[in-house]
Nucleic acid binder design. Structure first.
Lengths: 206, 206
DNA sequence: GTTTGTGAAACGATTCACAGCT
DNA sequence: AGCTGTGAATCGTTTCACAAAC
């Protein structure tokens, strides 16, 4: 497949959200212009985004909501389920375990780990926090595709190496560091400090 | 000022993080190449990023760590403090109130709000959750520059309108919706569902 | 008449490459 | 000699504009 811009992938995800709203409202068809207006982009952008993957519309009519939603789910790989582990049972980690959006989008959290003995054994949403020392073993048996890292920055790279060695293919990283991973592993980093600083910049330079 | 690419702002934030590490290690000067290696980019990119704001280095020598860090803090507007309110006292909201990174980066959380009466009155990190109905009044007296939205998607736009009317200039949005705001207000959205779907895409198309 | 799909044009960001300073 | 600062070249993404389908 041709190389797809990251920005296109993000927009496909947005479009899918809108289509699901439209589905809920019983709307049967939608035009690129309507999706564009909803997503703050242009109709040409919407059509170009789709064109990377094929042609899903009917000229003069637009797109049928259900069919397009189905295609986008397929493209985004949301027509299957993933197993995920959470590493770090601090405030954010334990909040994430309880986040319904994961399950809703096909991600099943199968375990949560922490290094801190005082946190091991605590139950979050039916999941008992396990000792990080169990992680390498556990990865061999449960074989999760995805890991969510919510450790302090200092621990994140070390944890990453264990996860990668254990066969994890995707990482959602909340630690404020740039993780080094082999090519076959994908990382998406959510860096709060960075977002705050970008906000600060926008407020300062106005 | 010339229009600065968002990607440049994000990298400046990264460079600052590295410089702070170097400061801690007592390293006095650094070259664009060293910063680039640390940040996964190129030395030309680093220099170009800086060049939007002036010339901070010495040819043949590089940059002095302390001076450069100071300049970046200035550019990013981190040489002052901001008042912030958190709206939504759910799992993520209450975890964020306790997040030390905010205070560390100059953001003081001055209040937290929720619509749910059963949550009002609960104390998080010394801050008593207030009824969302108090928000318009409170904004007039405390005048926070920044708001952090951690409500369900359905409530986010309504809350945004109240915040904007109350003079908030920057919003960090964790609700999975695109907020509509006037031009003078900046929004940074952290959309977990979207990050997960981008990860799913990366795993699927390999 | 309306809306898609798509090459071509325009725009914006990154990389190159080198003159100029230390 | 080493490294910065920057105009020029390259690369990638967005926008334009229109022929083709309904």
């Amino acid at each position: 497949m041709r190389k797809i811009p990251e920005s296109t992938v993000r927009r496909l995800s947005l479009y899918l959200r809108f289509l699901e709203e439209f589905e809920g409202q019983g709307i049967a068809t939608v035009s690129s212009g309507e999706l564009a207006a909803r997503g703050g982009t242009t109709s040409a952008q919407v059509r170009k985004d789709f064109s990377f993957f094929g042609s899903f519309g009917k000229r003069g009519l637009g797109y049928t909501v259900q069919e397009l939603a189905g295609r986008l789910r397929e493209i985004l790989g949301l027509d299957r389920r993933y197993k995920a582990v959470v590493v770090g049972a601090g405030k954010i980690g334990s909040a994430l375990v309880q986040y319904r959006g994961f399950r809703l989008r096909g991600f099943d959290v199968v375990a949560i780990y922490d290094r801190d003995r005082t946190k091991v054994g605590i139950e979050w949403d039916g999941l008992v926090t396990r000792d990080i020392a169990c992680l390498p073993q556990d990865l061999q048996t449960s074989r999760p595709e995805i890991a969510i890292i919510v450790t302090p920055g200092e621990a994140a790279q070390q944890v990453t190496d264990v996860l990668v060695a254990g066969g994890v293919l995707g990482i959602l990283n909340f630690a404020p560091v740039q993780l080094v991973v082999p090519d076959h592993v994908s990382v998406k980093t959510v860096n709060l400090a960075l977002e705050l600083e970008a906000l600060s910049f926008a407020l300062t330079n106005r």
